[in-house]
Design a protein around this nucleic acid. Structure first.
Lengths: 177, 177
DNA sequence: GGTATTACCGAGTGCGTACTCGGTCAATGA
DNA sequence: TCATTGACCGAGTACGCACTCGGTAATACC
């Protein structure tokens, strides 16, 4: 997908049309505008990403952190998806950008989901109780996205898999009991 | 700076010219091309950012982690700079983009600098020795950038300062001794 | 004081791009 | 079998954009 490489602004409808073997007018017939096309793409890819994420969001507490250590491998396998979201996120930081509300919503819901898993771990007594789950959830997602960004930029010099493992181990040591 | 809001691709030379009170042709007279203008801006802002970073990169080992806990406040104060780098980084992920080499270099050097501080801490016996300083350095920068991204997107729902503090404390607990 | 250099501008120029419009052709349904 | 609908296209159109060109006025240099 060209959006992942050139971003939304950097990609012409004609290029996308060529990629899917259709005319420019044909694409616009279906989506109405370039803006609507962006939102459709983002929504559809989000479904895919969520489906992948569900395997991670199943287990709670300690078990979640164990699974999380292996999450880097999934990103390496499907780097294109991570890149798409990263590029589009940066283009959407400004309120008023078409996809801004989508990304705000997406991060809020992901923070909540991760926080719930941590809370469950706290209630089961697997995790310490003297940390704020929402703050920790933001931290976990931040580390995940930030490391992915470094890896996308410079895959030869960044070991994404090792980074995830190392961070997850540190978290487990720090949050246990 | 408009680059921080609209990105490089999204900003017309005419807009920049208006912002600094000059004509379009006048700007091009000085920089030659839009591409060169981008690189000049990035290089100049990098100097500012490095100057700020030096206060952080002074102390080593444990002391570094203490200072790092307060780094979030600096980002909040100068959010525009963080945003500029984030937007331009995402536009530069692709090799072949004008600023790609700059960002590759920048991250490599920052990882090295942070890693050195950790190594110094290890040698002084303040920090554990059974972790890879480069991997940990990447993690620290990742968390910093990732959390900044979440905060830029949704400042009302993300507490950047608390996030930095919480993460730095966790690191200190985990890496000590 | 004359000449060269420099900072800057107004007015192009040509290209890329989002979107429109009028149309063809095939499938669908009565 | 005929009307309708919808997928799709070719050819525009209007505009935004990076960059050029020829010029002016101030400054620097000798």
């Amino acid at each position: 997908m060209l959006f992942a490489r050139r971003g939304w602004r950097g990609t012409a409808i004609a290029d996308l049309a060529a990629e899917v073997g259709m005319s420019e007018a044909g694409l616009l017939h279906h989506f109405g505008s370039k803006r609507a096309l962006l939102l459709a793409v983002v929504a559809e890819r989000d479904v895919q990403a969520m489906a992948r994420g569900d395997s991670l969001f199943g287990p709670e507490g300690q078990e979640f952190l164990v699974r999380f250590a292996e999450f880097g491998e999934g990103i390496v396998e499907r780097g294109g998806l991570a890149r798409l979201f990263m590029v589009l996120l940066a283009e959407s930081l400004d309120p008023g950008e078409p996809a801004h509300p989508f990304f705000v919503q997406r991060f809020r819901s992901m923070r909540s989901r991760v926080a719930e898993l941590l809370i469950a771990g706290q209630e089961r007594g697997e995790l310490r109780k003297d940390f704020d789950p929402m703050v920790k959830a933001a931290e976990i997602l931040a580390m995940s996205d930030g490391l992915t960004a470094q890896w996308l930029l410079d895959p030869d010099d960044v070991d994404l898999v090792a980074g995830f493992r190392s961070y997850a181990e540190g978290l487990r040591r720090d949050l246990s009991r």
